[in-house]
């Protein structure tokens, strides 16, 4: 299975109107990803943390808009929200949001935002603007402790396909992220706004590999680790205390509840492992 956790949703805020042409464009991106071999895709809705959240924050209506595409191609589509964290004091509680989205991510743009997102925000993913300077110098201690907490770091490679300046910044930022996380818990995603920004595993992996991440971790970052983020996010809504859920495959849509066989999903910790996240969840029959 191949996972892309970041396909841009065209709306920029909750109030933005959405037209059909933009939805068609998203469909084109999804179909290109399907041709490139992706099986699980998350649509990414980016908003400011200080915006007022409406009562139903999820505007995607994935079933209505993309149901036909999902059925004919076998692609699985999930929703993700990314909060741009500027001033932590103005932010609101994200507990309400996380019920409506499969994945919650944070994108800090100030130093205080970084410290909030790394310390105590209940998120699945930490991401940055890869075409701009990082908000602050990333320290081993803060990033590694977030990764230990179960939050993954995201590398978005669409910045590498744009103009020269953002390419340079991309290289700089990726090296910083890889260094500060000691290449643990990194997830690679496209961040595609147009179908031309999609790449397959071979291209993306060779790109990140040359920036200092080991080859096997590059491949993991697009499959196992990324699906772990999906699992984590979906367990938040579909399970009891993130540990027990009913159904055969929680990551799959619609599988909850309509299957007779029960599966226990356990959190496990293997202390000998370098990365505790990998042994954490095992599916047992």
């Amino acid at each position: 299975m191949l996972v892309d956790l970041n396909v841009c949703w065209p709306q920029k805020s909750f109030q933005d109107p959405l037209n059909d042409a933009e939805v068609d464009r998203v469909k084109e991106v999804l179909s290109t990803l399907h041709v490139l071999g992706y099986t699980h895709v998350a649509l990414n809705f980016t908003v400011n943390h200080s915006d007022k959240f409406p009562s139903n924050p999820n505007p995607m209506q994935i079933k209505e808009r993309f149901g036909e595409l999902m059925k004919s191609t076998g692609l699985k589509i999930y929703s993700r929200i990314t909060l741009v964290i500027d001033d932590p004091s103005k932010g609101q509680s994200i507990a309400k949001l996380s019920q409506h989205f499969d994945i919650v991510a944070a994108l800090p743009i100030t130093e205080r935002g970084v410290s909030l997102a790394t310390a105590n925000l209940d998120i699945d993913l930490l991401t940055f603007h890869y075409n701009q300077r990082l908000p602050c110098f990333l320290k081993h201690k803060t990033i590694c402790s977030t990764v230990k907490r179960g939050v993954k770091l995201e590398i978005v490679y669409s910045a590498a396909l744009k103009d020269l300046q953002s390419k340079r910044q991309f290289v700089n930022n990726v090296r910083n992220v890889v260094r500060s996380s000691r290449s643990r818990g990194i997830v690679i995603s496209s961040g595609a706004q147009s179908p031309l920004e999609c790449r397959n595993v071979l291209g993306a992996a060779s790109l990140i590999k040359s920036l200092g991440l080991q080859n096997d971790k590059c491949l993991q970052a697009m499959s196992q680790l990324a699906s772990l983020v999906l699992l984590n996010g979906r367990l938040r809504n579909n399970s009891y205390k993130q540990t027990v859920a009913i159904g055969t495959n929680v990551v799959e849509e619609n599988s909850l509840g309509n299957n007779n066989s029960c599966v226990k999903i356990k959190r496990r910790r293997r202390p000998s492992e370098e990365d505790p996240e990998e042994g954490k969840k095992k599916v047992h029959k």
Partner: peptide, 9 residues
């Protein structure tokens, strides 16, 4: 890897 990246970029 260089050639793969050149194709990719």
């Amino acid at each position: 890897d260089l050639v793969l990246m050149a194709l990719c970029l």
